[in-house]
Amino acid sequence: MDRAVQRGRVAGVVGGLTKKGAATRERIVAGAASLLRERGVDEVSLDDIRGATATSKSQLFHYFPDGRAQLLLAVAQYEAQEVLLDQQPQLDALGPPGSWAAWRDVVVDRYERQGTRCPMSALTRRLAPSHPEVGPVVAILLTTWQQKIEDGLRRAGVGEPRTKAMIILAALQGGVALLLATGDSTALRVALDQALDGLI
């Protein structure tokens, strides 16, 4: 399935936009996300985003009338969706023998490639003090992630799947935090393997 279609299913329809308008908005957000990943949140201006996405000033403010903060929030939502989409199809296939090791490998590879620069963390740190709406973006991401792990555990016949899913996600997040701080993925690998003991 096309990644843009998958993302649309995660995000839902942006109210009041035509199909073409939604595609234009998506193009701006995706281009901004790419630029922010490359340079960092504080190094990118609206003019940089306009240039990279071939967007006029009027177009940009049509889709993001409140300016940079509104666009950054949209990028945070986009990055949250990317976290889950990057784990597909392995995340939705959790359950059978072999599926947990395959998912673990995808997760570790994603974060090793990302290294110490996490666009999602940078965006939420930047927006959180003055934009409380960023909190639910993170909460929805983590809740959805945990639910998908929990669904896999149920398919695998694991007892207390909700508790086990919390343990797995906490191990993953702790390992990612250490990777971001040190650049070393060893803790992520060890923590995930321990949390997935009996499944892989």
Rank of each mutant, 00 (worst) to 15 (best):
Q173D: 07
L84Y: 03
V106N: 07
G31P: 02
P65E: 12
R126A: 04
T18I: 09
L91T: 04
A195Q: 02
P65L: 11
S99P: 06
V176S: 00
L91F: 09
L169G: 00
V10I: 14
I168R: 01
A139T: 12
D151M: 08
R110K: 15
Q70S: 11
P161L: 10
A122E: 11
Q70P: 02
S58Y: 08
P161K: 08
V158D: 03
R110C: 08
L71Q: 03
R7T: 03
Q87F: 11
Q114R: 15
F61I: 09
G67M: 12
Q77S: 12
A80V: 03
K164A: 14
R162T: 13
D193N: 14
R125Q: 04
G98F: 12
G174A: 07
V190W: 08
D42I: 01
P161N: 07
R104L: 15
T18L: 07
L91R: 02
V137F: 02
A11W: 03
I167F: 09
V138P: 00
W145A: 00
T144G: 05
W103P: 00
V75I: 08
G8P: 04
T163D: 11
D92F: 06
P119L: 15
M1V: 14
D66T: 10
P96E: 12
P132D: 09
S45P: 05
T186I: 10
K20M: 07
G174Y: 07
I168T: 03
V138A: 04
Q173N: 15
C118N: 14
A69K: 05
E133I: 06
P119E: 01
L192M: 15
Y111E: 06
A32K: 01
I200C: 08
R50S: 11
Q173C: 07
Q59W: 05
D151N: 12
I200Q: 09
P89M: 12
R68Y: 14
V29W: 01
R39Q: 10
V176N: 00
G115H: 12
L180W: 03
F64V: 08
I167V: 15
P96G: 11
D105R: 15
L17F: 13
L85V: 12
A74L: 04
L192Y: 05
R113Y: 08
P89L: 13
D197T: 10
M1C: 10
S185W: 03
L94C: 11
A191N: 09
H62N: 08
V44P: 02
C118D: 15
Q194D: 07
L141P: 00
Y63V: 06
P89N: 11
T143L: 10
Q70W: 08
Y111S: 02
L178W: 08
K19F: 10
A52D: 03
A33G: 06
A52Q: 07
D92W: 08
S185T: 05
T55Q: 08
D193Q: 13
L91P: 01
Q147G: 14
L180H: 13
S121A: 14
H131G: 01
V29F: 04
L188K: 02
R155V: 13
T143K: 03
